[in-house]
Computed example of a mutant assay.
Amino acid sequence: MPTTPEVLYQSVIAFAFLFLLARLLGKRQVAQLNFFDYIAGITIGNIAASWSLDEIRNLHAIISLVIWTGLSLLLSFVQRKSRRARLLLDGRPTVLIRNGNVLEDNLRKANLDLEEMMLLLRQKSAFKVADVEYAILETNGTLNVMKKTELEPLTPKDAGIQVLPEREPRVLIVDGHVIQASLERSGYSREWLLGEIMKQGATDFKDVFLAQVDSNGSLYVDLYRDQQKEPQIKEKPLVAASLKKIQADLENFALETRNQQAKASYTRTSQQLKQLLEDLSPYLRD
């Protein structure tokens, strides 16, 4: 039976040995298996299992568990706090392709062969080495690829096109129920939402399984299956919903503007439209 100092000594040696083994296996293996964390977790689990089965003395199990857990946390803390320690423990990123040329020496240092590098490139949608300007194997084993400039996709900025900033898409209807808080945060009214879902074949909110609006005001609507097979757009309720949306928008404009003349105009027009809706209501029912 090992003594307490022997347990302490052996735990520290085993921890250091496994870390060294993970480094020797190279970045690729560490990435695929998360080798060191994986082995450390298994070791801690085995210690706990042996303890629960009384295969090792309680005191020795506690000491070993504390040492393995403490050293793992200490290693993680040192890596976060010290750049030098991080470079020493994790190493540096390895450039595998520079200016379109494969660096064979770096490939060998990373413990990779050509086929393995090609596999990593394909995972980044780079099927031809000729398309790659730079490829860097990071310290966590992932490969980052920068394609040649002429092969990069054209962005709106490259084309000089002004685009609106994206905002978080919001779910407005779930299982036939309107999410009122989400609707209000999006700045839309129930009338607008009803009009939009009717354009896509719904007759009421209960016909919609899911509705989500993006930052451009485009509404995605997923109807229940029976509604999807036979969409029915009823024109009169759609007109009523559109008029209600306009009237609600005019009320919002009146609340938001600081121009008193504009506020009065918005309010007057909103009231007139409200009266018009009341007059037309009997004729706009389906």
Rank of each mutant, 00 (worst) to 15 (best):
N106H: 07
Y220Q: 14
A240Y: 12
L53V: 03
K206M: 08
E152R: 15
L18C: 06
K147E: 08
D113M: 00
R92Q: 08
N46I: 05
F127N: 10
R268V: 00
I47R: 04
F17Q: 05
Q247D: 04
L18N: 00
R170D: 00
L154P: 02
G195C: 09
L33E: 04
I67R: 10
E138V: 08
L119Q: 10
E6W: 13
R23Y: 04
R80Y: 10
P237V: 11
V12T: 13
N34L: 00
L154M: 12
N58G: 15
L74N: 02
E152T: 14
A22M: 11
A181F: 11
G141Q: 01
I39D: 05
A126M: 01
R258H: 13
A241D: 08
D222F: 07
V174Q: 13
Q212V: 01
R57C: 13
R83W: 12
R92G: 03
E55N: 10
E138G: 10
P169M: 12
P2Y: 13
A240C: 11
Y266M: 05
R108P: 08
Y134L: 14
Y134H: 15
A240S: 09
K27E: 07
D249I: 04
P5R: 09
A40H: 04
Q200K: 06
N111T: 05
A31C: 04
A181I: 06
D207Y: 00
S189W: 01
D286N: 05
A110F: 05
E152P: 06
R185S: 14
D175N: 08
N140E: 12
L120A: 04
L250N: 02
L277V: 03
Q200L: 02
E166W: 07
D279N: 00
L89H: 03
D207F: 03
A48P: 02
A22T: 06
Q123E: 06
F15T: 05
D105P: 04
E104W: 05
F127P: 11
L183T: 08
L151Y: 07
A16H: 01
D90H: 08
G176E: 02
G217P: 05
D249S: 09
